[in-house]
């Protein structure tokens, strides 16, 4: 019981995502932060106030972190399918130095 809870917490903190999710996370990071930077500069220039640039830049970065860092379900849509342990038993035979391995 206690082990299960510890395992849950560990998983949540580690926040592992699948390979497709990693590709998506990286793409989101670059796309969002670049857009936020561009908007920050343009909005600050239009309103003639550098504070606006700073606030938009920081706020947009916080939002990006919120979207990219936690292991959201959409990062785990393509879990890796491992071969089941039973398959190895019958059709595939592995031999090492002429000896058959089970």
């Amino acid at each position: 019981m206690a082990d299960e809870v510890v395992e849950k917490v560990r998983e949540l903190l580690e926040g592992q995502i699948d390979f497709e999710g990693q590709r998506l996370a990286e793409l989101m990071q670059y796309a969002f932060l670049t857009t936020v930077g561009a908007i920050a500069f343009i909005y600050g220039y239009v309103t003639q106030n550098v504070y606006n640039s700073a606030y938009i830049g920081l706020g947009g970065t916080a939002l990006t972190m919120l979207l990219v860092v936690p292991p959201w379900p959409f990062f785990n849509k393509h879990p890796v399918r491992w071969l089941s342990p039973h398959i190895g038993a019958s059709p595939i035979s592995i031999s090492v130095d002429g000896k058959k391995m089970s």
């Binding site: 903190l13 580690e14 926040g15 592992q16 995502i17 999710g21 990693q22 590709r23 996370a25 990286e26 990071q29 670059y30 932060l33 670049t34 936020v36 930077g37 920050a40 500069f41 600050g44 550098v50 640039s53 830049g57 970065t61 990006t64 972190m65 990219v68 860092v69 936690p70 292991p71």
Partner: peptide, 26 residues
């Protein structure tokens, strides 16, 4: 990008790049 900590570091790292580019533009 496999774990939350790595993603946090990556986002922050790219944020510093974007922030310095914007600062140079300004």
């Amino acid at each position: 990008m496999h774990s939350a900590l790595v993603r946090l570091q990556n986002v922050f790292g790219f944020f510093t790049t974007v922030a310095s580019c914007i600062a140079i533009l300004i």
